[in-house]
């Protein structure tokens, strides 16, 4: 009898652990995908606010970079976003102008969204590499998530801009 109870207990524990792990794999992949879509939305928002800024400042290069970021194919997107960041950094931003503030805020949100996305991608990739997960092919319904590797898009914040303005 004793051995039977033992076997049942081991099987139950193993079942519990497998269900738990499978759910964890699903959850982390869903989070990474969802965070990726949120990041996409923030990137689009940044490009849109940049386009408005470019029209107001009369900056054709910035406008082209904003369009480039919006139209880029998946494999070119990181480079296109970096181009946009580089051109935005060259802008003289004024914290009293609504469209300037919008770009600064949108850039900050891109940085936050990317942080969240990067963390979930790392977690998902870590769980994918576990031997048990690989052996039981728990990831067969999910493609491997990829990092979105871009330069830090944060622009000087409004407060920093103000303090610099008062210092000069």
């Amino acid at each position: 009898m004793g051995w039977l109870v033992g076997v049942v207990a081991v099987v139950a524990l193993l079942g519990f652990y497998l269900t738990f792990t499978a759910k964890r794999v699903d959850r982390l992949h869903a989070r990474a995908a969802s965070a990726g879509r949120a990041l996409d939305a923030q990137l689009v928002r940044r490009a849109a606010t940049s386009a408005v800024l470019a029209e107001e400042h009369g900056e054709p290069d910035l406008y082209a970079a904003a369009r480039g970021a919006l139209d880029a194919r998946v494999e070119d997107r990181e480079a296109a976003e970096n181009d946009l960041t580089r051109l935005l950094r060259k802008q003289e931003l004024d914290s009293s102008e609504a469209s300037d503030v919008a770009v600064i805020a949108a850039s900050r949100r891109v940085a936050l969204a990317r942080q969240v996305h990067t963390d979930f991608v790392r977690d998902a990739l870590a769980v994918r590499s576990r031997p048990l997960v690989r052996a039981l092919r728990m990831t067969r319904r999910h493609g491997a998530p990829a990092y979105f590797d871009i330069d830090d898009p944060t622009l000087p914040s409004v407060t920093q801009v103000t303090s610099r303005a008062t210092r000069d």
Binding site: R31, A33, S34, A38, R108, R109, L112, V116, F120, T159
Partner: peptide, 25 residues
């Protein structure tokens, strides 16, 4: 720049980012 209303705005941006990352779940 460390006044609570200013800091709370930054915290709210993080809240919004966290909520966005789930909205599509």
């Amino acid at each position: 720049q460390f006044d609570w209303p200013v800091v709370a705005e930054q915290v709210l941006e993080v809240y919004a980012t966290a909520i966005d990352a789930y909205a599509d779940d």
